[in-house]
Amino acid sequence: MEHNPRLNDKQLSAAISPKQLLIAVALVAVAAAILGLSQLLIGPNTATSGYLTLLFLLSVVRAGSWRTRLFSVMWSLTVAALGFAVGGFGLWATLAALVLVSIVQAFVTIGEASFLTRSPVNLLAFASLSQSGAELWQAMLGSAIGAAVIVAFAALTKSRKQPDAADVPLSDRISYAAVTAIGSFLIVYLAELLDFPYREWTLLSFSVILAVSADQQSQRGWSRILGSVAGVALALMVSLLPAPIPLVLAAIFIVLCVAYINAGNYALFVLFLTPAILLTTASEHSAFALGLYRLESVVFATVIALVGSLAVACLRRPAVDR
């Protein structure tokens, strides 16, 4: 099932237009200013919620209709509220909600809204937020702030009508729902069992690999792995530089991430995404250990995604071909 046709895994050109770069700089600057003020005036939980929702809705900037944009905002707020609600009830309630969102996502994200594939990631993130002592109003206010930033930029950005995915066969949607639900369950459950601290990283990689059609998933998985390896190496080199150079470069990497995702260049998006994440992640782990965690999460996510898709392909293969 094609969930994000705009990201081209095979696109190698690093070319980017001045307009795309300017939009990326403006979006990052405005978002940083608003989220910074939110943290200062309201608190870190609101700022975190805004950041999560902003990432979730980033692709909405290029949506071609206001109906799509408003639906995407409502879906993001629903996922946030559900995740926050179940987080206080423990692991099994969170896993049940994760499966539910994974299934529903396959049937509500159609047409231009098909890029909303990180719903399980946001649900898990808001469940974790509720366990950290945050209040519901803080989470929802932050989500509304993040959504407002995206909607404002969408109004100022020239949209492009995307292909309609409404004619995707029901069997494909059921297959996608099953793989996403089972894979998400396994990732979170095993992360809990093995005490792996970055389950959101794994779940995100899993979600974006499944975001393309089955014949492109292997290519995307390799793009994710190779881009992450290069990104970890870049992050390690940058981390050796004196402050504040690593943070300045991290900001540049974030801008390039936004620019390349809007340009549809997935390979370069991943390349700059990894050091941007590693250089801005607060952790007691060393840069080297953090890089290893990143690579472990990407490899494991790729294996789960490809095995799940292969299992579906085998089950759907006609008996005469077996």
Rank of each mutant, 00 (worst) to 15 (best):
G221D: 01
V121R: 00
S228A: 15
L306F: 08
S297H: 07
A311D: 02
V320K: 10
V312R: 07
Y51T: 07
L77C: 10
L241Y: 01
A127K: 02
A211L: 07
A287G: 10
A106D: 01
A31K: 05
A235I: 11
M1I: 12
I145D: 02
W75H: 13
I245C: 03
R317E: 11
F185H: 06
I261F: 06
S205N: 15
N45I: 01
Q105K: 05
G264M: 07
T180G: 00
S175F: 00
Y176A: 05
R294E: 11
T53S: 07
L306H: 02
L234F: 14
V104K: 00
A15D: 15
M140R: 00
R173F: 06
F84Q: 05
Q20V: 07
H285D: 15
P44E: 08
I277S: 02
D9E: 12
W222C: 03
A289R: 13
A165V: 01
S171R: 12
L290W: 06
T78G: 14
P318Q: 15
V208M: 11
T281H: 04
M1P: 03
T94E: 04
G308H: 05
F206A: 08
G133W: 04
Q216M: 11
I304D: 01
L70W: 12
P44I: 07
L37W: 13
M74I: 13
V238F: 06
P275G: 12
S184H: 07
E112H: 00
G142A: 08
S213T: 14
D164M: 04
S283A: 13
L95A: 05
V28E: 06
S72Y: 03
C257A: 11
A214H: 01
W222A: 12
L290A: 07
A289W: 08
F153P: 04
T280F: 05
P163S: 09
V312W: 11
A177F: 02
A125N: 08
V238D: 02
V258T: 12
E135Y: 09
V86C: 08
A85N: 06
H285I: 09
W222N: 06
L234P: 02
S130N: 07
W66E: 04
A152K: 00
I110R: 06
L41S: 01
I209R: 00
T48Q: 05
Y260S: 09
G133F: 04
W92F: 15
V270L: 12
R118N: 10
K10Y: 08
A96K: 04
D164H: 04
L52K: 01
I304K: 00
I254A: 14
V270Q: 14
Y189A: 14
T78R: 01
V312L: 02
Q219N: 10
A282M: 10
L170K: 03
L91D: 03
Y293M: 14
L35W: 03
A85L: 13
A106R: 01
S171L: 12
R69T: 09
R322D: 12
V238N: 08
L100T: 11
A106P: 01
L279R: 08
A305G: 05
V299P: 03
L247G: 07
S218I: 12
